[in-house]
Simulated scan of single mutants.
Amino acid sequence: MHAPATRWTTRTAKLLRTTVLSLLAAVAAAGMSAGPALAADGDVTWTVRTASNSYGATRSSYSYNVNPGGTIEDGMVVANRGKAPLNLTVYAADGFTTDAGQLDLLTRDKKSVAIGAWVHPDSASVAIKPGKTATVPIKISVPDNATPGDYVGGILTSLTQPDQAEGINVDRRLGIRIKLRVGGELKPALAIEDFGVDYKGTWNPFGRGDATITYKIHNTGNAALSSEQAASVSGPFGLLRTKAHDLPKTPELLPGESWQVTVPVEDVSPAFRLAAAAALTPLLTDPSGSITPLDKISDTAHAWVVPWTLLLLVVVVVAAVVVAIRLTRRNRVRRKQREDARVQEAVEQALRGPKA
């Protein structure tokens, strides 16, 4: 049995003679089931899987190590599970990471420069009778000047059908991921960029607010990398530290790709000068699926946080204390003056003697 590959769906809408392309990706993660990847819609159903050969019999996707100038020959098995003959288009395309963190493939109208340009199916189409299978040989030719590192793409089967009810053409795509590591020096590297922190306080002078840490993860190396994240916010000298909890692992980024991260940190003390810190542990996956954690990278950012309501309360309290002290002193002086006046009057009266 074979683990699933990946399914992509594209709709080409025709409106006022203008063609609108939109990509709808439904990704079936490798290993979720024991069967091949399946495309089904009414009476049209087909599957794709990797061919069984010296590279393996139960592969969920294609994964190779090859040197610049090298070639690889493999195959994809396509099965028609429907009741009508199928004529499928076969082609390769470069991969990219979507905003949702999923791997997707370029549409046919976009130019591929790596996997999509190096992978060549034996035929641009395949015709399959109902209940039959066909093996499509594929050849990968890596250029002599290929840059070492990781490349990801896929080999696709495609069927375009008109949808009379909606007046559109539906391009259904079913494919298998290809990960290629070109030999040479591997330089895995992630960078944290555009790091910042923002704080939103509360009117409660003794309350805590919420901080938001933002940064961009940039794959500056030549290897595909995911990463584990950690983030925290603290006051001066590391006091009053608050950690962000349950941060997810970032998606695997291809060389050159970036991923925007927003981390909310709740219950943060407004400690005048906040320090936000983020740390990433890059994770390198080799062709066998083994994951190796690399050295951590980190960055920090600072923000002034003035607890205005608390300061206002302190000012009011201090002002009240000052006024109370001044009033107390003034009353004490007045009492002393009245007492001195009574004493003076008594002395003068005693000096004058008793009245006749």
Rank of each mutant, 00 (worst) to 15 (best):
V333E: 15
T89V: 04
V333A: 15
I178G: 06
L239S: 08
A276R: 01
T97R: 15
V233M: 03
E339R: 13
R108P: 04
A84Q: 13
L313S: 03
W118M: 07
Y151K: 08
K249V: 12
T242G: 00
L23N: 10
L38W: 07
I176V: 12
R177W: 03
K110H: 13
N87L: 09
T250F: 07
Y91H: 14
E228F: 00
A134G: 00
N87T: 14
F195Q: 11
P137R: 11
G209M: 08
E193K: 13
P121V: 05
R208H: 10
R177T: 12
L312T: 12
F237Y: 06
D104Q: 04
G183F: 06
A350C: 01
G238T: 11
S226H: 06
A13Q: 11
Q344E: 12
L274N: 02
D109R: 09
L24T: 04
D267M: 01
Y215V: 05
A189I: 02
Y64K: 06
P143G: 11
R7E: 10
N80I: 09
G209V: 11
D299Y: 01
K216T: 15
D210A: 07
V317G: 04
G289D: 08
A231E: 02
N169D: 14
K14L: 13
P270T: 06
K129A: 14
P130K: 05
L274W: 01
V113H: 09
T98R: 13
L16M: 10
N67Y: 09
P293H: 04
E252N: 03
P293W: 00
A93R: 13
V113I: 10
A146T: 01
T71C: 02
I178H: 01
F237T: 03
I155W: 03
L310M: 08
G82E: 06
V136Y: 10
I297K: 04
T45N: 07
V44C: 01
A39P: 00
T147V: 11
D99N: 15
T262E: 12
P205G: 06
T309C: 01
N169F: 15
V321G: 04
P236G: 03
V77K: 07
K14W: 05
G183I: 02
L253S: 00
P85G: 05
K139F: 05
L180H: 04
D198Q: 13
P307W: 09
V318P: 02
L274F: 01
E257M: 02
P293T: 02
V233F: 00
D122V: 04
A350N: 06
I128G: 08
N331Y: 11
A3G: 05
G207M: 11
K139T: 14
P137G: 08
G289L: 11
